[in-house]
C-alpha cells in the first residue's frame, strides 16, 4: 500500500486530538515493540499496540477502525515496560473516544449475548459498557 504523507495531517486535528486526550507525545515512541511483546491480548488484536502508534505518528486516522483499542484491558503492562514512558493505555483510550465521537456505540447493552452476561464477571460487563457506549 502506498500513501502520500500529508504535512497538514502531521499537524492536523487527528494527532492533536489524540495528544490532547492522552497527554502523550506520539513521537516519543521509537517503535521498539516492547509494549507488544508483553501485552496479554495481542492474540486477539488486529494491530499490535506499537502498530497502533505508528500510523498515528504518520497522521493516518485509519487506525481508529482497529479492534485493538476495544480489546485493551488497561492492564498497564505496556505502560510499565515502555522505555520511553509512553502511557499507551491512554492512547488506546483516546482512540476509543475518537471512535465514539465519530460514530455509534461499540457496545450496546441490549445486544450483549445473555449467555455471556450469565458467565462474565459483573465488573467486566460494567467496564465494557462504560467505555463502549456513546
Amino acid at each position: 500500500m502506498r500513501v502520500v504523507l500529508d504535512p497538514l495531517a502531521l499537524h492536523g486535528a487527528f494527532i492533536r486530538e489524540i495528544e490532547a486526550i492522552s497527554e502523550q507525545n506520539l513521537l516519543a515512541c521509537n517503535q521498539c515493540g516492547r509494549c507488544s511483546a508483553g501485552c496479554p491480548l495481542v492474540e486477539e488484536m488486529d494491530l499490535l499496540p506499537n502498530q497502533i502508534i505508528r500510523p498515528a505518528q504518520l497522521g493516518l486516522d485509519t487506525v481508529v477502525d482497529s479492534t485493538s483499542p476495544w480489546l485493551c484491558a488497561a492492564c498497564l503492562m505496556c505502560e510499565a515496560r515502555c522505555p520511553k514512558g509512553v502511557d499507551l493505555p491512554r492512547i488506546m483510550d483516546a482512540l476509543r473516544q475518537i471512535a465514539l465521537r465519530r460514530g455509534e456505540s461499540r457496545v450496546v447493552a441490549g445486544d450483549v449475548d445473555p449467555a455471556l452476561l450469565a458467565g462474565a464477571p459483573q465488573m467486566a460487563i460494567v467496564g465494557a459498557l462504560r467505555r463502549g457506549e456513546k
Binding site: 500500500m1 502506498r2 500513501v3 502520500v4 504523507l5 517503535q31 502498530q51 505508528r54 500510523p55 504518520l58
Partner: peptide, 12 residues
C-alpha cells in the same frame, strides 16, 4: 518506504 508501518510512502 516506512517498514515500521509496512507502507510505501510518498512525500511532496
Amino acid at each position: 518506504a516506512d517498514t515500521l508501518s509496512d507502507l510505501a510512502v510518498d512525500i511532496l
